[in-house]
Design a protein around this nucleic acid. Structure first.
Length: 480
DNA sequence: TTTTGAGTTGTTCGA
DNA sequence: GTCGAACAACTCAAA
């Protein structure tokens, strides 16, 4: 016999929060009991299944969501496998007559979700999707001629002028959770690293979950947003929001961030506007990914297909391990490995170094970031790597080759960041720590540094590499 | 349709 | 030490 009040499934994905969650809100509004579920669908993304650091975050974020739901008297159902099959099984088991979710924008997710939606509808199950992750849907913002924006500044102007987000909602007022038994435990999802367990540094630096995300935002608004324009560039200081992983997993929505910034005491500072422009960069990346789904795989500007990259495994390894001999590059790569995150200024420096000094394809860097970043995000990662390579939409001009020594001197003048991540150089004076190979022998030995032994010699000469890069870019100029 | 101004994040060189 | 120009040419977006 049919249930007179069949439950509604809320399918959580990258929206692991209870407040300002349109799918959950809509489900609660039906008055029916709600079944919250997360499905680990590892096969859908192909080579882009979540990397190690992401999986660690996901585990703890799910734990946090599950605990929040438990306090409301419900349980987060956990499943593993092909999403369609798992949903079908859950519908079968619970008699649910509707499935609600917030949208994803990765190409495989769009394809999968579209198929699921039509299959559910064919069988008389209501399927509804919502916008839970973006300020503006990619199909709702366009140039005057109706084309997608390919340049950030006009996109940003349009966003500010015509697409300011509505007020975020809180948690649903009345949420009746369906009692759901059985299913998998969090450990069954097997998301945590075991042999070896390398997650110590992540644990020390991050607290996944909705409550922690709001805590982080609150701290940022209180302490850092007003000076954001300048301090965000200094990797030795805490001048950034560090919200990226929270935003990626949807523990907090960009709408919530936007309004919190606007309502803060520092709303009228240049810092606030600069910070919101970074939120807009995230939107812009999603916009590009939606309209150009090849973005993570292929040069946006196809003339870059003619570029002749090196395939040097040794140099790639040295970059990954933070052993290039350029302190700012090594500090960044070690910060990434240890904490799952890297300061954005340093991301640009290490990316420029991989591409323009080591001559290694941006895809290799993109892959490494994908596996090691807790904030790994298909849209932002792809757009940023292509930006640095010069192959993207609205990309960096070809002659913009970061000088790893100059950048280090400019943005970490006292070497605080370098000393934190490269302890073997800690005793070098400020003047030479950015380029140890330029130091007098006596200075090195007083600091206990022996190049080639305690710290590597530079694996490339930046001056030479720069010339080579400029020549190579010159060569592909007319291709395509 | 044509024109015009602009385009995240830099570096180097020479005055 | 500081400063402005050059580093290409092209594509995008709007007038």
């Amino acid at each position: 016999m049919a249930d007179p009040n069949p439950p509604v499934i809320v399918w959580f994905r990258q929206d692991l929060r209870l407040a300002d969650n349109p799918a959950l809100q809509a489900a609660a509004a039906t008055g029916a009991p709600v079944i919250p579920v997360y499905i680990l669908d590892d096969d859908a993304p192909g080579d882009w299944r979540p990397g190690g650091a992401s999986r660690w975050w996901l585990h703890h974020s799910l734990a946090s969501l599950a605990s929040d739901l438990q306090q409301l008297g419900g349980e987060l159902a956990l499943m593993k496998g092909e999403a369609q099959e798992q949903l079908d099984a859950l519908i079968e088991q619970t008699g649910a007559d509707a499935v609600f979710w917030n949208r994803l924008y990765e190409p495989w997710a769009r394809k999968r979700d579209e198929a699921i939606k039509s299959s559910l509808k064919d069988r008389g199950v209501r399927a509804r999707s919502f916008n839970g992750s973006l300020i503006v849907e990619p199909w709702d913002i366009a140039t005057k001629t109706g084309n997608p924006y390919k340049v950030f500044t006009p996109f940003w102007k349009s966003l500010k002028a015509d697409h300011t987000p509505a007020e975020p909602t809180g948690r649903p007022d009345a949420l009746q959770l369906h009692a759901h038994e059985g299913g998998l435990s969090l450990d069954d999802l097997d998301l945590l690293p075991t042999k070896p367990d390398w997650s110590g540094g992540l644990q020390e630096n991050w607290t996944p979950g909705e409550a922690a995300a709001h805590g982080r935002l609150g701290q940022f608004l209180k302490a850092a947003v007003s000076d954001y324009s300048d301090r965000r560039n200094l990797p030795g200081q805490s001048g950034t929001s560090r919200l990226s992983p929270h935003l990626h997993f949807g523990e907090i929505s960009p709408r919530q961030v936007w309004h919190a910034v606007k309502q803060s005491d520092h709303a009228r500072t240049g810092g606030a506007d600069t910070y919101l422009s970074e939120i807009a960069w995230r939107e812009f990346s999603y916009n590009l990914l939606y309209h150009f789904p090849d973005l993570p795989e292929a040069n946006f500007q196809s003339k870059f297909d003619a570029f002749e990259w090196d395939e040097c495994e040794d140099k790639l390894k040295a970059w990954q391990k933070g052993q290039t001999g350029y302190p700012i590059v090594d500090a960044g790569m070690r910060e990434l490995w240890a904490t799952g995150w890297m300061h954005n200024r340093v991301r640009m420096i290490v990316a420029s170094f991989l591409i323009k000094d080591l001559f290694i394809h941006w895809r290799r860097g993109e892959d490494w970031f994908w596996d090691t970043l807790v904030d790994a995000d298909l849209a932002s990662n792809a757009a940023s790597w292509q930006w640095t390579a010069g192959s993207g939409a609205d990309a960096a001009p070809y002659f913009r080759v970061f000088n790893p020594v100059g950048q280090s001197e400019k943005f970490d003048p006292k070497g605080d960041y370098l000393r934190k991540w490269i302890p073997e150089l800690a005793d070098l004076p400020d003047k030479v720590i950015h380029a140890p190979w330029t130091a007098e022998k006596s200075v090195l030995s007083r600091a206990g540094v022996t190049l080639g032994e305690t710290y590597p010699e530079p694996i490339v000469d930046h001056g030479e590499a720069r010339k080579r890069a400029l020549a190579a870019f010159e060569k592909i100029k007319d291709a395509g």
